[in-house]
Computed example of a mutant assay.
Amino acid sequence: MTADLGWSHEVRLVDLSGGPLNLDLEADDAVRAAIARRLDLKELKSLRAKVRLRPWLDGAEMSGRFEAVVEQVSGVSLEVFDQDVSGDIEVRLVPAGSPHAPDPEAEIELDPESPDPPDVLEDDRIDVAAYVVEHLALELDPFPRKPGETFEYAQPSDDDSPFAVLKRLKDEKG
């Protein structure tokens, strides 16, 4: 996903054989503009992540945190506003063919208390930047509104309903 955005930070599983890796990632202006277009944001003003990768079974465990500032358009007032967005990154990954990979044929049991099954990698590389963008996308409010802004719905009076207008027109002609 992020390779087409011009942002990728790949780590091979073999790179973790020496122990955990700590990464600090920050998207530059061009990358942030591409991510903003992809995520339908007015602007992505900053995106930083601190991620730790460590060996886990025959794959890796990724943990960390990202922080971003996004400029969005309020779905209520249509005003542009800045929003701080942050979130934790917790992912387990295994290579294709791993005995620890989830069985695609198995019935899925949903248990919100249990950890997510590991992601299966296509090869031996982890694109850390792709996971940062994915977690940012998951934290974005699909119906953004400025802090403190509320939607006030007022029931239209019966006189303003489309049917009342049609009735008045019919009565006037009639």
Rank of each mutant, 00 (worst) to 15 (best):
Glu43His: 14
Glu43Ala: 15
Glu43Trp: 06
Lys45Thr: 11
Lys45Gly: 10
Lys45Leu: 15
Lys45Ile: 12
Leu47Ile: 05
Ala49Thr: 04
Leu53His: 03
Arg54Glu: 15
Pro55His: 06
Leu57Thr: 05
Leu57Met: 11
Asp58Phe: 03
Gly59Met: 02
Met62Asp: 01
Ser63Trp: 00
Gly64Tyr: 02
Phe66Tyr: 10
Glu67Met: 07
Val69Asp: 11
Val70Glu: 00
Val73Tyr: 02
Val73Glu: 15
Gly75Lys: 05
Gly75Trp: 03
Ser77Phe: 01
Leu78Phe: 13
Glu79Asn: 14
Glu79Ala: 15
Glu79Gln: 14
Phe81Pro: 09
Phe81Met: 08
Phe81Glu: 10
Phe81Gly: 07
Gln83Thr: 09
Gln83Leu: 13
Asp84Lys: 13
Gly87Gln: 03
Gly87Ser: 09
Gly87His: 10
Gly87Tyr: 09
Asp88Glu: 15
Leu93Val: 14
Val94Ile: 07
Ala96Leu: 12
Ser98Pro: 13
Ser98Phe: 07
Pro99Tyr: 08
Pro99Lys: 11
His100Pro: 00
His100Gln: 13
Asp103Gln: 10
Asp103Ile: 07
Pro104Trp: 06
Glu105Cys: 02
Glu105His: 14
Glu105Asp: 15
Glu105Pro: 02
Glu107Lys: 14
Ile108Lys: 13
Leu110Thr: 09
Leu110Asp: 08
Asp111Phe: 07
Glu113Thr: 13
Ser114Lys: 12
Ser114His: 06
Ser114Ala: 15
Pro117Phe: 09
Pro117Trp: 06
Pro118Phe: 10
Asp119Gly: 02
Val120His: 05
Val120Thr: 13
Glu122Asn: 11
Glu122Phe: 01
Glu122Gln: 09
Asp123Gly: 11
Asp124Val: 01
Arg125Leu: 13
Arg125Tyr: 07
Ile126Phe: 01
Val128Gln: 06
Ala130Ser: 14
Ala130Gly: 13
Tyr131Thr: 02
Tyr131Met: 11
Tyr131Ile: 01
Val133Thr: 02
His135Lys: 04
Ala137Cys: 03
Ala137Thr: 03
Leu138Asn: 08
Leu140Met: 03
Asp141Gly: 01
Asp141Ile: 09
Asp141Tyr: 03
Asp141Cys: 03
Arg145Gln: 13
Arg145Val: 05
Arg145Thr: 11
Lys146Thr: 06
Lys146Cys: 00
Pro147Trp: 07
Gly148Thr: 08
Thr150Val: 15
Thr150Asp: 15
